[in-house]
Amino acid sequence: MQQYTFKTSKSNTRPVIRIYENLSAVIDTGADIPVCSDANVLIERLGANEISIPGKVIETVGISGSVRGRIFRVKGFELGPLIYPELNFFVPDDPTMSSTFLLSASMFNGLICEVNFKDHYFRITLLDDEQTVRLVSFEKDGEHICWDVRKSE
């Protein structure tokens, strides 16, 4: 068994962690899709490619309604012990996020994750038969996005 612990913010009611030195990311277990507020950061720093079709409307539906945006694929996104060889990020056309990244439930599908609001940490537990390499694929259904998460072989 392997555990990896991120400290979470004491001053924020949401589980906010630090990634890539000083960027904040929210663990959003209500979200299906990882979100990034800035496409250029994904492209220029994380080597992402846009995979949404230009002109094709991509929408996600959240608590505040429908949001349009584009999809970018990052090769080799890492979070603690987890490696995502290909991870798709939704980038809203008009992001109004208070963190640069939202890390979605789909990224942690099948894992043991603990958000501790008392002692302020987010802990990922990998059992011995769990892979650190995680594949999160998606398919489009009309103009909406569906996600299918599977472990690597």
Partner: peptide, 14 residues
């Protein structure tokens, strides 16, 4: 307004 790409890249670099 939201952060510039350069601001975010600087944050990634610490």
């Amino acid at each position: 307004s939201r952060p510039t790409t350069q601001d975010l890249k600087d944050a990634m670099d610490g």
